[in-house]
Write a protein that binds this DNA or RNA. Sequence first.
RNA 1: GGCGGCGUAGCUCAGUUGGCUAGAGCAUGCGGUUCAUACCCGCAGUGUCGUUGGUUCAAUUCCGACCGCCGCUACCA
Length: 658
Amino acid sequence: MSKKTFYITTPIYYPSGKLHIGHSYTTVAADAMARYKRLQGYDVMFLTGTDEHGQKIQRVAAENGVTPKEYVDKIVAGIKDLWSLMKITYDKFIRTTDKEHIETVQKIFKTLYDQGDIYKSEYEGWYCTPCESFWTETQLVDGKCPDCGRGVEKTREESYFFRLSKYQDRLIQLLEENPDFIQPASRRNEMLNNFLRPGLEDLCVSRTSFNWGVPVTFDSKHVVYVWIDALSNYITALGYLGEDDSKFKKYWPADVHLVGKEIVRFHTIIWPAMLMALNVPIPKQVFGHGWLVLEGGKMSKSKGNVVDPVVLVEKYGLDAIRYFLLREVPFGSDGVFSNEALISRINSDLANDLGNLVSRTVAMIQKYFGGVIPKERAAGDYDEDLKAVVSQIKGKTEELMDKLQFSTALAEIWKAISRTNKYIDETMPWALAKDEQNKPRLAQVMYNLAESIRIVSILIQPFMPETPEKIWRQLAVPESQRTWESAGVWGAYDPVSPVAPGEIIFPRIDMAKELEALSALDNSAPAQAKAPAQEKKAEAPKAEAPEGIALIGIEDFAKVDLRVVKVLACEKVEKSDKLLKLKLQCGDEERQVVSGIAQYYSPEEMVGKTLILVANLKPAKLRGIESQGMILAASDKESGKLTLVTIEGEIPTGTKVS
RNA sequence: GGCGGCGUAGCUCAGUUGGCUAGAGCAUGCGGUUCAUACCCGCAGUGUCGUUGGUUCAAUUCCGACCGCCGCUACCA
């Protein structure tokens, strides 16, 4: 009889930039889950990896003067180092540049094509030259490129499409019949209401505008676009359609895909549809967790915003960081990462409660009994109550872990720690120690303390890979009494050697001093206002967005007619959250422009402003209102800030800007 | 604008199918203790449970309206 299997995945990350604490969030959670299941005796398959194709990588590599493969190799090495540092116990690290992956993707593509689920589109579409992007009629926004808003040209650009629409009804059925398929449940409603019920469009699944990707075997102009390339990693990693598909047979369907909330849609609509087309079972669950966001930039001077996981781990230790990530935020909700919150957690939960409990217990066993608890013991008050509380945490922890409720699971374990600290006060060992007659009672008290700690130390293993060992060493817990099962057995503790007082497991941190130090560190580095919990681009179609704009000649710039204008009137566009309608004075002419700045500027404050207008932009309709040009503004996606471009000094409207 | 969610102690949040004096953690104050990492234990709190109507013997919990915030989505020329 073979062991039960458990297959868990993280998204594959897009290796285009540096790593921060948010990247670690999903992966640490998945690791905790994988460790937990292994401890329970499951045959676990834990997959993570990188999504290495696409235009952006190709471009960044070119800018760095290296081949795409050389570029990603370097980044991937860094990611693996980080996972190693964080003791991530993945069973396989898949790269979409792996030979096996590429071959399987090609087979999948061909299969879907042969059976008619992928078809070549020859009908007219729209091409945005600056973005090198191909769009369908319905993707256009008022006839313009949805990415950059510039004009598009009708082309006969060919492209392959996946018949996503064909699976609409089956997808609706899937979500309706399996309410737990998408977690948290609120995401399920979003998928149904915003996508499935309104109707799905077929999906463009190939590109001809770049070549850093998996080539379509039967049509060499095309490479496979992100969907089929990236999502399929979950099965190609198991050898699906490969020479050895034993792992696929063994582990598929996945028990859970852990993903960030921003890519829930791809995993709950596109991915299942692909699997349906391939006649492969659907994964059991997709869990979309929230983001760990940094506190707003405005207080960063006093709070500090150091989020480099390497720095954090070096500073506070791996277990403290992992504990914080999994404890601070209910899995599924967004949470705030701040240095105060981190230090506060470390001090109160780890140093004061757990660390100090171990320290005082070991110290007492050493002091009162020379390190060995006598076998002659006497039961007394409070014993049963302590035992009752501590004995049931294994069950509670398991119940919560099975629902991926890491935070509440940890809270539950900490209740036991708290109860144990209280037990010391109740039994007052130092009083018992004064009278030789009380030795048996004192021995029992010491035993109960050690036993509680032993049980706790086993249960925290999924979250903290280093601390349990330290505790076992100090309490001299024999190998056989460290098993997951033994955490459910009160009284298993039976050491064969004396306790070994040792290092302080979690040193207290001086909050004030530390914040100051962090703030200094922070000031030396560029401040970040916001950081998503993971690389947002991972598997997202926006990877196509133009980045790294090419050099142009002066003659190209001359094509743009920029003018100084003054705002005469301004009002909000009805039924729109972002649009303002502006009436502008441009020399003798008046212009009406619609601009998406309503969230940054009120209509009142706009009036009278001097701005820069792109005067020769093709007119477009927005919300049915004609916009004759475009207002310039600087915006930062990361921080969500936007500010208008104005002009220094007085100059008549209509003046050309060059 | 559409769909959904949230607004509870200074802070972060729990609050099961409406029902006794509304809870936890952190922070604060006071007391206890000394084994321990100025730690632990106990006590004390303050809350119009967003505002406003309604249903009910009874609403934080159900319904309506409103205010504020958020998510997804459409619109950001």
